[in-house]
Write a protein that binds this DNA or RNA. Structure first.
Lengths: 349, 349
DNA sequence: AGCTAAAATGTAAATGTTTACATCCAAATT
DNA sequence: AATTTGGATGTAAACATTTACATTTTAGCT
């Protein structure tokens, strides 16, 4: 029991399954089984094996296992930009369930570069990754075409999607969320409501813009529709905010932004132009990132259940990997969080 | 040339190096060499091999390579909290040079949980990772003790460090940065300058607090020293900000915060208490994250060259991995960015 | 031409697992 | 007592590379 640790060959070599087998007095196959399928091994030997493992300090060589099993236990989380805080909580959710199931997460930051996305997809075919959770639609469609309609391709989308390709998807109802925001603004008395959208070719933005137009139409405000295009970041929010607010066109009294960062950019633009929020301008954001409670004024925004999105997406992917039946489309509910950046108009317009 | 693709065995099996060898009319060893050490293969065969590779659509099986070479080409980036935007640009920097050198980055989010940190360290011994860039000191010291002083252990720290363990380190001079911030506040006429520190047991915070005290002392202000403790996040900034500003003690006229998020939290606290920034209170942040240009007022802060930190840290780690000589400690320069949250006192105090 | 050195290539072992198949043994059934 | 069954274990092949070593080819000399 107090033997010196046994490392058969080299003085400092890492113990392998052979060392364990020797120490336990059985074959490597049995050791392997004791680890992978304990129920197929007798209680007595299982115990001996476990002792041996502890004794020699064994842990399996993952490369060898991956090679033999032709899998990697790695999931790629593909996103457009790692610095966007929106994604971090989704990833946390993914990690929870992935780790639980013995999977690792490899974060793939595309940086809006198709080549990067392609490189990460290649990991699939080389068995370096078992599946992908895709959180951006800014990648070459060709990469994803092979998965269209396929029940078995290990890919699920989270939040983002393609309008013309049928992939498993976990997301909120962007159309409905947008309707809710606009409805709320109308209920406050706003008529000239602008939208500061994300990239126009982004399907989720198209969904939101559709909701925007539908709701305006429902209130006979269709000719007030006005959509500016940003890229979700602070800077574009500020720039487009300035453009919306100081242009010659009659100034909007409310702006619905497709991200919180853009909304904060709009707040800065308004401040700079001496436009008071919410008295003269209402601003609504999207995502409810941490910042939205700490900017001035605190941001009214739409909250997505980010952690849950991550969990469900990973769950779904695991189902696909196991070849189990699974619901391919799931829409989770968002909700409007009313804070201080929205209200009825006050004072001169 | 227009042959149907050759996949020798199964109709849909992934082509291996054998298929390439067959197609190129040489041995697998030659193919392997053509890829790993092209200069050891004649021009003619190299060309043939490359054609064959393209023809059969071969890409190497990484698990097999890793197994044989006993490496993983993976670097773990260990950080305390992935949602902190401060780290994202460091990671970008790391990725640049890592990818260049054929390495992947695995982001390890410790979530302040020692068990997680341990799990990531274990990847080293199982050859699942070749090295670690450590960006948090909130892990069990035992994990890192083995690397103390060692020239060969593949670990480098970025930004954070341990005061009592000698590890390769890329960081800014926190003491000096702190001095510069406090000096600047003093030069504006401030006397009651408080610090909102990160966790008191964090060495970088200790460095900054030492700079704070030293600078106060240099100006005969030692008895004005007052340090509150937060955790770098918005919320703690807000809470500690309230405590500092509405306590019975004479209210500070300036607060130096160890993160921008905390500074923004302080801004909110001040706003809530009707304290005007910068007229009645100056606030300095740390890190210069994107937000600091878009909050109100824009934040005076200390900028760290995050991208460069990431690059240098990875560079250094690669040197260690190759067993090359390298400078183990590098301090990069930070600088103070003066914006709108600092100034001389105005109006009634 | 003959010899040597260097370059190019091939052979086969090695990497650490998993797993199909074979074997063994004890218990259950006849 | 003989046979069957099923569980437990062992044997050895397979996974796709890399690389030490051996062999062949080429080039460079005299």
């Amino acid at each position: 029991m107090l033997n010196t640790p046994v490392t058969s060959k080299q003085p400092h070599s890492v113990p392998t399954i052979k060392d364990v087998a020797k120490a336990a007095g059985c074959s490597t196959a049995t050791v392997s089984r004791a680890l992978a399928t304990p129920e197929k091994v007798s209680d007595a030997t299982r115990k001996r094996v476990n002792q041996a493992i502890a004794q020699v300090g064994y842990s399996p060589n993952i490369a060898a296992r991956n090679l033999r099993r032709a899998e990697s236990k790695t999931i790629v989380a593909l996103l457009p930009d790692i610095s966007n805080p929106f994604f971090s909580e989704i990833i946390s959710g993914m990690e929870d369930v992935a780790h639980q199931a013995g999977y690792q997460i490899l974060i793939g930051d595309c940086e809006h570069d198709p080549a990067r996305a392609e490189a990460y997809f290649r990991l699939l075919s080389t068995n370096q990754a078992d599946g992908i959770v895709l959180m951006t639609s800014e990648i070459p469609k060709a990469l994803v075409k092979q998965a269209d309609g396929q029940a078995s391709f290990p890919l699920v989308m989270a939040c983002e999607f393609f309008s013309d390709i049928d992939l498993p998807l976990i997301a909120v109802d962007n159309h409905q969320a947008s309707c809710q925001a606009i409805d709320y603004l109308v209920s406050l008395g706003h008529r000239r409501i602008a939208t500061l959208s994300g990239p126009a070719n982004n399907p989720i933005c198209q969904e939101r813009n559709r909701g925007y137009r539908d709701t305006l139409a429902a209130h006979q405000l269709s000719n007030e529709a006005r959509i500016a295009e940003g890229n979700f970041g602070f800077r574009s929010g500020y720039q487009q905010g300035l453009a919306l607010l100081e242009g010659k066109a009659p100034r909007p009294t409310a702006i619905f932004c497709h991200s919180d960062e853009m909304a904060v950019g709009v707040l800065k633009a308004a401040r700079q132009l001496g436009i008071r929020v919410p008295d003269q301008l209402s601003v609504v954001g999207f995502d409810n990132i941490g910042l939205s409670e700490y900017c001035d004024p605190e941001l009214t925004t739409i909250s997505q259940p980010r952690n849950e999105i991550g969990q469900q997406a990973m769950q779904l992917l695991l189902h696909l990997l196991r070849g189990e039946q699974a619901i391919r489309h799931q829409t989770l509910s968002s909700h409007l969080i009313v804070r201080k950046s929205t209200g009825r108009l006050k004072g001169q317009p």
